[in-house]
Design a binder for these strands. Structure first.
Lengths: 238, 238
DNA sequence: ATTTGCTTAAATGTCTGACAAATGAAAACA
DNA sequence: TGTTTTCATTTGTCAGACATTTAAGCAAAT
């Protein structure tokens, strides 16, 4: 397959970033296929963000060096689809999300800068508006946690976590928050911001645990029937 | 774009898994475009694993319910490309990997079954073979950690972690292990297996920290020049 | 009654040739 | 010199044709 050949060239570094591929007609002749076939292969590569095409005189297909930013968006939409198609329940998704997030807390405490605190405090202020819709509250929550994870200063972590958090946003949007629930979440957010400011990683881990339990309680109240089917494990805790 | 329309239908659940899409000719007529254009759109969806095509009498495009297994492989290859193209160093990748893994330890302690321990002990036995090549040692390491993460019993976690661990395998393969390093790693692996068997999550977290430091030391010794450029943060620990 | 082989229809896979649209660069012009 | 026009190049789309694969139906032979 011609797409695989080009893909291998990119992965191996034979084709450098931003380098222009031969034109469709040339590729067709070189590989002994028609232009239509080449185009389908290029579309496939474009769907994987390996190339970008421009048309016009200096146009063509160019090797695209995907940024973590873009990869993030890809991953998030992929995670959303995966979770949707495989009928993952809120409890499982939450468990995963908070487990991953918890792992970043000590790094976040170590590497956080003032800009991360700024974003988090701004989102907390927004969350206090009682007129906020549930969707907007969720979106603000995502922004808050994204800043929290970015504070770890590790692009790989930010990439993975953003995908997890944004991927389950549709699930979280199904939750209806009562004002009491919102107050509890906001209180924890403030405690998290304080602990991050003071760089106390151990406290951050505990607060994330609280937040997980709070979120699960809220989700449980909103759609208890979906969680009821998942019995608690009989294994003892450590 | 016709591809986006179909994608939206799949994401929204309007098109169920394994459902057959209209034929290319019908799609072309329905959307008022040519069959070639439809084909390019379908190729794009196929590249994202949203559909699979079969040819023949009962052929066509079918909505593909991607399994976590497949998504894992996709993610891993994507992570490899990302890390390679963006020149992520081993230290950053390791930091991310062990941070995420650490987050799963308490869940793993809670939900692990005998099969996870079996796999881990088998891989440990394999790692003890001094004739093992560095690549094979790495591969066994990946299998060990994969079982460790699977023990958490959360498909979303397994998916994310497997991608992270396998994605950085090429980086890890650049490390040459001395026998002393291998012994240290194997010792930690045995301690991890023991702690998992005893379901002591807190000890697992500590052991993961040790393993991270051991791995970083090994990587540092093997290619100190790549890590030397990243100075330690001046911030205090918690 | 069961198996085997042939035919046929439906669908994707590919090819060919053409035209439309965008785009950058060179040429023509003021 | 600066502006406009023209032009060549390249991707985007279309229409129609043929090749290939596959399932299903049918008929003949065992």
């Amino acid at each position: 397959m011609i797409a695989d050949a080009i893909r291998a060239d990119i992965a191996s570094g034979k084709l450098a970033a931003d380098q222009r591929l031969p034109s469709e007609s040339e590729l067709a002749e070189a590989h002994g296929v028609s232009r239509a076939t080449v185009r389908e292969a290029l579309k496939r590569l474009a769907a994987q963000s390996l190339i970008r095409t421009r048309r016009g005189a200096a146009g063509g297909a160019f090797v695209h060096r995907q940024s973590f930013e873009e990869a993030c968006a890809d991953m998030a939409s992929k995670a959303t689809l995966l979770i949707g198609l495989n009928e993952i329940d809120i409890a499982t998704a939450c468990e995963a999300r908070f487990a991953l997030e918890r792992g970043c807390m000590r790094l976040a405490a170590k590497h956080r800068g003032p800009e991360h605190l700024d974003i988090m405090r701004r989102e907390i202020a927004r969350q206090k508006d009682p007129e906020l819709s549930d969707e907007a509250f969720c979106a603000s929550d995502v922004a808050f946690h994204r800043a929290l994870v970015d504070a770890a200063g590790n692009p790989v972590l930010s990439w993975q976590l953003a995908a997890a958090v944004e991927g389950i946003e549709p699930l979280m949007n199904m939750i209806t928050y009562r004002q009491r629930d919102r107050d509890a979440v906001i209180g924890l957010h403030e405690a998290i911001a304080d602990a991050l400011e003071a760089r106390v990683g151990s406290k951050l881990e505990i607060l994330i645990d609280y937040l997980r339990e709070q979120t699960l309680r809220t989700a449980h109240a909103a759609q208890g029937h979906r969680l009821a089917a998942k019995p608690e494990s009989p294994h003892p805790r450590d």
